[in-house]
Amino acid sequence: MPRKPQAMIVHERDAEEVSLPGGGRFHLLEDSRATGGLLGANRLVLPPGADGTRPHRHRLSTELFYVLDGTMEFLVDDTLTAVGKGALIVVPPGTVHAFGASADGPAEFFAVLTPGIERFGYFRQLGRIARGEAGWDSMDDLHERYDVHFVGGSRWR
Results as ranks from 00 to 15, higher is better:
30 E>R: 00
51 D>C: 12
145 R>A: 15
138 S>C: 11
1 M>V: 07
55 P>K: 05
125 Q>F: 14
39 L>K: 08
74 F>N: 01
29 L>R: 13
116 G>F: 02
110 F>W: 12
47 P>W: 05
17 E>R: 15
109 F>V: 10
38 L>H: 09
53 T>A: 15
33 R>S: 14
150 F>L: 08
139 M>V: 00
127 G>R: 08
135 G>M: 07
76 V>S: 04
24 G>T: 12
26 F>M: 15
133 E>T: 07
44 L>C: 10
40 G>S: 14
5 P>N: 02
45 V>N: 08
118 E>K: 07
33 R>Y: 13
52 G>P: 10
8 M>E: 10
105 G>M: 02
149 H>W: 10
77 D>C: 05
15 A>S: 12
155 R>E: 03
1 M>D: 00
92 P>L: 07
7 A>T: 09
108 E>P: 09
53 T>C: 15
60 L>E: 11
81 T>V: 11
16 E>P: 01
12 E>R: 11
156 W>D: 03
87 A>F: 00
49 G>A: 02
62 T>L: 01
102 S>K: 05
129 I>S: 09
78 D>C: 04
137 D>T: 01
56 H>E: 03
156 W>V: 04
31 D>R: 06
6 Q>C: 05
8 M>G: 11
112 V>I: 14
48 P>F: 09
142 L>D: 12
34 A>T: 12
131 R>T: 07
118 E>A: 14
47 P>L: 08
105 G>I: 07
18 V>M: 10
110 F>K: 05
80 L>H: 00
147 D>Y: 07
127 G>W: 09
103 A>T: 14
2 P>G: 00
129 I>R: 03
57 R>L: 08
80 L>G: 02
73 E>L: 07
121 G>T: 03
22 G>I: 10
7 A>K: 11
138 S>A: 08
15 A>P: 06
150 F>V: 09
16 E>I: 11
56 H>Y: 01
149 H>I: 12
129 I>T: 05
39 L>V: 02
149 H>K: 03
120 F>R: 02
42 N>E: 14
50 A>D: 11
100 G>L: 11
67 V>P: 03
33 R>T: 14
52 G>F: 03
106 P>M: 12
1 M>C: 01
154 S>Y: 06
149 H>T: 03
13 R>D: 09
47 P>R: 05
7 A>Q: 06
5 P>V: 00
40 G>H: 12
49 G>P: 01
94 G>M: 03
51 D>I: 13
33 R>I: 15
62 T>C: 06
153 G>H: 04
125 Q>A: 14
9 I>V: 13
7 A>R: 10
131 R>I: 08
